[in-house]
Nucleic acid binder design. Structure first.
Lengths: 334, 334
DNA sequence: CTGTTAGCGCCTTCAA
DNA sequence: TTGAAGGCGCTAACAG
């Protein structure tokens, strides 16, 4: 790099007065080299500022020390946290991360996964809205791969948050406060986490007396949440289960600007516990998904695949209910 | 990838009944190939699902179609936005992004920059707190490189937000409202943007009658802002210039929980316009730094370096004042 | 323990 | 227009 062409292994060999294979061996700490030579070689390498060209090594070794991460949207705090956890964990093991943001474009997603995989040793796929069959068709071509937040896969480790369990905690919190009519602001219909929540809702409705939960199709971002305010009010629900914190915060903001008190008039619970959830006004009750842990665990699974060779068991993280100030008992009915 | 070893160029050659050089030429759309052969080769390639191994190409072509991005902290919304803008712009030009999060570790930062650069065609360095001399020593080894949010560099394009101009706008906004005693919550002393702001403050104090601005060492995150509440109150300032939105929001939160009204009792202005600034309560007045544009422009500069060969002029983005509801005229003095 | 040789998979002169 | 041969920079058998 820099101005002239980089120094190669032969330059070091020449300076140290040995063959290039000795240099290679010495630089890789191969024990079958005379310690005196090792020293001479390393001195020569240091003098020339030599580092082996990683590309050439990759080609011959068949590994790049790099993994690809495909993320649907770098703007979403949850995916940012996953990326961060993954990136930091990987760097601990001296691996690099190639990042691919599909910008929520499903077609793009497959292509990106395929092409980035070619440049790396493995891929971590975070594609919550890819149809299941498409995923199953894609995964064999991607191996070794790790998948985040999807249902279990045949030959691929899955690292997922248990959205159903998290939602159940929230529902129990609200029913415990006395709520019997809730609204669920549904995000993307196609996501696995949405299905997990629907299951949790169905079970809760079956198990908890008098409980009713209306589903309101909404979206996944702040503006969607704000836009759902009228529908929420029309539903007469006394508590809201938002698809995620962004939606909850959007709804919260829209309600406040209409002069509607939260939690007095309406309780709101989010999901994820993004950084600002705790700093909202009022602070948001939510289920905390340790997204950066998800990323770190995804790396552990990938690392096991890469070094160990055998897939680890699927790992699940359970969101923790965080009760803050957007939930309270419902108003006494007249 | 997948189970067996990938198909190589010779497999395609065999199936198409041509030499491997013809396959190479055909796949790269070299015009000196018989159209009939091109078709036959591409059909064979398609049948085998062949794609040239990017590693091998990289080695022989001397380019990886990848750039490295070094970021001090993937948790910071500004850097996230820079990464996002950069990543999306680069993918438009068919480039990949290798990401390196130095986790605010300065030693790490240099090493990371050097090693990731070896695997890529160029590097975008976002290292606001690296000492200037260290940067100047490092950059020649990194070329081609682009630097974000630093003062101009000898042979390296710099893409920067004009923090001084942004702060000046905020100061004028506040003095226009009648404030004459402000507090500046300083972030990291070593960052270039901090120096730019100090200059802006010095100029403003010299030019605007009766204006006084106290500097309070604070920090760069939410908690630092919250922790500065007492110092701010003790200063008797009527308006606050926060180092960034995180600090402003932290201060805002701490003041509210002490029952102090913003903006009635104290005006607060942030900096950056991170996603939640608009949704804070009250919505935060700030200077909007289009961080994802910064990232996109950094890519443009890098792309020019990579393809064009010559550095582009330094580009600067000017933050735009966004007046929301945390600033108001000061209370009339008794 | 060290040097020579053969690739990793591909692109690209050089001849034909 | 096509094929054969060399080499990108490195590692790993294979001899010595």
């Amino acid at each position: 790099m820099g101005r002239s062409t980089r120094t190669r292994i032969t330059d070091v060999a020449k300076l140290a007065g040995v063959s290039l294979s000795t240099v290679s061996r010495a630089m890789n700490d191969n024990p079958t080299v005379d310690p005196a030579l090792v020293e001479r070689v390393k001195a020569a390498a240091a003098e020339l500022g030599y580092t082996a060209n990683p590309l050439a090594r990759s080609l011959v070794l068949g590994r790049t020390q790099t993994v690809a991460v495909v993320i649907p949207d770098l703007e979403n705090p949850t995916y940012q946290a996953i990326l961060r956890g993954l990136s930091r964990a990987a760097s601990t093991d001296e691996y690099h991360v190639l990042i691919a943001d599909s910008v929520e474009d499903l077609d793009n997603e497959r292509a990106l996964a395929r092409t980035t995989r070619l440049r790396t040793d493995g891929i971590v796929l975070c594609a919550p809205r890819m149809p299941e069959e498409e995923l199953q068709e894609l995964l064999p071509d991607l191996s070794p791969a790790v998948v985040i937040n999807r249902s279990p896969q045949p030959d691929t480790p899955v690292v997922a948050a248990d959205y159903g369990a998290g939602l159940r905690e929230i529902i129990e919190h609200l029913t415990g406060l006395g709520h019997r009519h809730l609204a669920y602001l549904a995000g993307s219909e196609r996501s696995a986490s949405h299905r997990a929540r629907q299951d949790a809702i169905a079970r809760a409705v079956a198990e908890i007396a008098d409980l009713r939960i209306d589903e309101i199709p909404t979206g996944v971002d702040f503006d969607s949440g704000a836009a759902a305010a009228d529908a929420v009010l029309a539903s007469d629900a006394t508590g809201v289960l938002a698809f995620n914190d962004l939606v909850a915060l959007g709804l919260l903001s829209a309600l406040r600007s209409r002069g509607i008190d939260v939690p007095e008039r309406l309780s709101i619970a989010g999901f994820d516990d993004i950084p600002f959830a705790a700093n909202a006004t009022p602070p948001l009750t939510t289920a905390s998904v340790p997204a950066s842990d998800l990323g770190a665990q995804a790396w552990q699974a990938m690392h096991a695949l890469l070094e160990g060779g055998r897939p680890t068991a699927a790992s699940t993280v359970v969101p923790a209910l965080v009760v803050r100030e957007t939930t309270a008992p419902p108003l006494a009915q007249p």
